[in-house]
């Protein structure tokens, strides 16, 4: 019931906004979706990955290529797109998580960069540096979803992601992830298969990012390499850290704040808002490792006493 209410409120808001604000709103919702998934991987399972945004891109590109170059029907294209994400995620995660330490971060960093190289050099398949543009979401059951109605699809995606992650977080799997994050040796001693938990968390969140990417592909009706570069992967990490890693609410706050910050800051600092992000991120790690949500908890604690 609460989920339905949230769906109605969040997607209803889209009908009150103009075209421009609707566009900003949708992108914000997509960022929140990504941040939630990344938070599960980084905040809850303790894995640093730089490929989350690459999977967003893999999802977007694969659905577009499947639909408009191979002329696969939409439902099949979506399934195949998810399958591509899962296969790539497994191929990276299985060897990388066998190793201790920071290796997943490095392997995913290489993957993210490699993905952009492939996009740029993909010729007709990926459209090269210009990407692919000028396509439209195919009609489903005779309906052409567009405008604020498409925002409803994004809200649905966001809530579905959140629902899946909350359920998982509260299940044995979420607890296993937290145990693996805090102390892998102890977790292994408790009978948790550490490597398998890591691979599962990585694959799951990467697939979620891929699905978000598929939805994104029809927001601007264009996909091109710069969107899926390393910059945004960093931004995602910053969002989760600034908001408060390990908490769903933290991911939401971080994503909304860092997404909207450039709009507020642009009169003051122009295009140099990334500098502010860096400072915020450094301040968060040094002063309040639990992020803004931790700060909020502290305030509430102080007042309730």
């Amino acid at each position: 019931m609460r989920w339905l209410g949230a769906f109605l409120v969040l997607s209803g808001a889209a009908f009150l906004l103009g075209d421009y604000h609707n566009d900003v709103y949708r992108k914000m919702l997509l960022w929140v979706t990504l941040a939630l998934g990344y938070n599960f991987l980084f905040g809850i399972c303790g894995q640093v990955s730089f490929s989350h945004f690459a999977f967003y891109g893999i999802g977007a590109y694969s659905v577009v290529i499947l639909l408009f170059q191979l002329h696969v029907p939409l439902p099949l294209a979506i399934l195949l797109g998810v399958a591509v994400c899962i296969v790539v995620a497994l191929a990276v995660a299985i060897p990388a998580t066998r190793l201790e330490g920071f290796y997943l971060a490095l392997a995913t960093l290489a993957l993210a960069q490699l993905f952009v190289v492939l996009l740029n050099e993909g010729g007709d398949i990926t459209g090269g540096t210009g990407g692919i543009a000028n396509y439209r979401l195919p009609a489903m059951l005779g309906l052409q979803i567009r405008g604020p109605w498409y925002t409803g699809v994004i809200v649905f995606l966001l809530l579905l992601t959140l629902w899946v992650l909350v359920k998982l977080d509260r299940s044995w799997f979420g607890r296993a992830c937290r145990a693996v994050r805090d102390n892998p040796e102890a977790a292994a001693a408790m009978g948790i298969d550490v490597a398998r938990t890591r691979v599962a968390a990585f694959t799951l969140t990467s697939a979620l990012a891929g699905v978000a990417g598929m939805v994104y592909a029809f927001v601007d009706n264009t996909v091109n390499p710069p969107i899926f570069g390393l910059e945004n992967a960093f931004l995602l990490l910053f969002m989760v850290i600034v908001g408060g890693s390990g908490r769903h609410a933290g991911a939401v706050i971080g994503a909304v704040l860092l997404f909207l910050l450039p709009f507020w800051l642009s009169p003051l600092v122009g295009h140099h808002h990334v500098l502010v992000f860096g400072v915020l991120m450094l301040a968060a790690i040094l002063l309040q490792p639990k992020g803004l949500i931790g700060l909020w908890d502290q305030c509430r604690h102080r007042f309730s006493r």
């Binding site: 303790g46 640093v48 920071f102 960093f234 990490l237 910053f238 850290i241 140099h272 990334v274 500098l275 992000f277 860096g278 400072v279 991120m281 450094l282 790690i285 040094l286 490792p289």
Partner: peptide, 28 residues
């Protein structure tokens, strides 16, 4: 961070922040 006893990950992330700050200062 080291003095606070944070793990090795915290300084790595903090240095990513430094990376971005350094680059942006130069680009400004």
């Amino acid at each position: 961070l080291v003095e606070k006893g944070a793990g090795v990950l915290a300084p790595i992330l903090a240095l990513l922040g430094v990376l971005v700050i350094t680059r942006e200062i130069i680009s400004v």
